Amino acid sequence: MTIRNWFKFFVIAMLIGGGVTAVASLFIRWNFFQPYLVAGEFGEFIAAFTWMILLGFTMSVIAQAGFFAYLTLHQIGVGVFKTLTLWNWVQLLLIIIVLVDLVIFRFAPDAKSVGDWLFYIGLLVFLVGAAIATAIKKVNMTGKKHVLISAIFFMIVITSLEWIIALMGRQDNINMYVALLLFPLVAVNAYQLLMLPKYNEKSEQDRKKLEERRKARKQTAQQS
Rank of each mutant, 00 (worst) to 15 (best):
residue 175 N to V: 02
residue 211 E to R: 14
residue 209 K to M: 13
residue 142 T to D: 06
residue 179 A to D: 05
residue 205 Q to H: 12
residue 204 E to G: 11
residue 176 M to I: 00
residue 147 V to A: 06
residue 190 A to S: 14
residue 186 V to N: 06
residue 212 E to Q: 14
residue 197 P to F: 07
residue 218 K to F: 14
residue 182 L to P: 12
residue 216 A to Q: 09
residue 187 A to W: 09
residue 152 I to D: 03
residue 187 A to I: 08
residue 175 N to P: 08
residue 169 G to W: 00
residue 172 D to F: 08
residue 169 G to N: 10
residue 176 M to P: 04
residue 160 S to N: 05
residue 187 A to H: 05
residue 157 V to I: 03
residue 178 V to W: 13
residue 171 Q to T: 14
residue 211 E to S: 13
residue 191 Y to I: 03
residue 159 T to L: 01
residue 204 E to D: 09
residue 182 L to R: 02
residue 147 V to G: 01
residue 145 K to P: 04
residue 162 E to V: 00
residue 194 L to T: 08
residue 153 F to A: 08
residue 183 F to P: 13
residue 207 R to E: 11
residue 153 F to D: 02
residue 199 Y to W: 13
residue 157 V to F: 01
residue 163 W to T: 03
residue 215 K to F: 12
residue 193 L to V: 12
residue 194 L to W: 07
residue 210 L to M: 13
residue 180 L to S: 05
residue 159 T to W: 01
residue 148 L to V: 01
residue 180 L to W: 01
residue 152 I to K: 04
residue 201 E to C: 06
residue 157 V to P: 09
residue 181 L to T: 15
residue 155 M to A: 07
residue 142 T to W: 09
residue 207 R to I: 14
residue 165 I to Q: 03
residue 162 E to T: 04
residue 206 D to A: 15
residue 159 T to I: 02
residue 177 Y to R: 03
residue 169 G to H: 03
residue 156 I to R: 05
residue 148 L to R: 08
residue 177 Y to W: 07
residue 204 E to A: 15
residue 217 R to M: 13
residue 182 L to H: 06
residue 203 S to Q: 05
residue 211 E to V: 10
residue 186 V to D: 08
residue 187 A to D: 01
residue 201 E to W: 13
residue 179 A to N: 08
residue 175 N to E: 08
residue 192 Q to F: 12
residue 198 K to A: 13
residue 175 N to Y: 07
residue 180 L to G: 10
residue 213 R to S: 13
residue 186 V to C: 11
residue 192 Q to C: 15
residue 198 K to N: 13
residue 184 P to G: 05
residue 153 F to R: 02
residue 211 E to H: 11
residue 162 E to A: 11
residue 146 H to Y: 05
residue 198 K to S: 10
residue 188 V to G: 06
residue 153 F to V: 00
residue 158 I to C: 06
residue 214 R to L: 15
residue 164 I to F: 06
residue 213 R to V: 12
residue 191 Y to A: 11
residue 190 A to E: 01
residue 155 M to P: 08
residue 151 A to Y: 07
residue 206 D to S: 08
residue 163 W to Y: 06
residue 196 L to P: 10
residue 212 E to A: 15
residue 153 F to M: 02
residue 201 E to Q: 14
residue 161 L to H: 08
residue 146 H to R: 00
residue 142 T to K: 02
residue 175 N to A: 12
residue 156 I to D: 07
residue 153 F to K: 00
residue 184 P to T: 09
residue 210 L to R: 14
residue 218 K to C: 08
residue 151 A to F: 07
residue 173 N to P: 02
residue 144 K to R: 00
residue 195 M to V: 12
residue 188 V to Q: 00
residue 193 L to C: 04
residue 172 D to N: 13
residue 152 I to Q: 01
residue 206 D to F: 12
residue 213 R to M: 12
residue 170 R to G: 10
residue 180 L to A: 11
residue 205 Q to Y: 13
residue 176 M to G: 10
residue 165 I to H: 04
residue 213 R to D: 11
residue 164 I to P: 01
residue 199 Y to I: 05
residue 149 I to P: 07
residue 218 K to G: 10
residue 147 V to H: 02
residue 149 I to G: 04
residue 168 M to I: 11
residue 217 R to H: 08
residue 212 E to Y: 11
residue 155 M to Q: 03
residue 154 F to A: 05
residue 162 E to K: 07
residue 215 K to L: 15
residue 202 K to R: 15
residue 156 I to A: 04
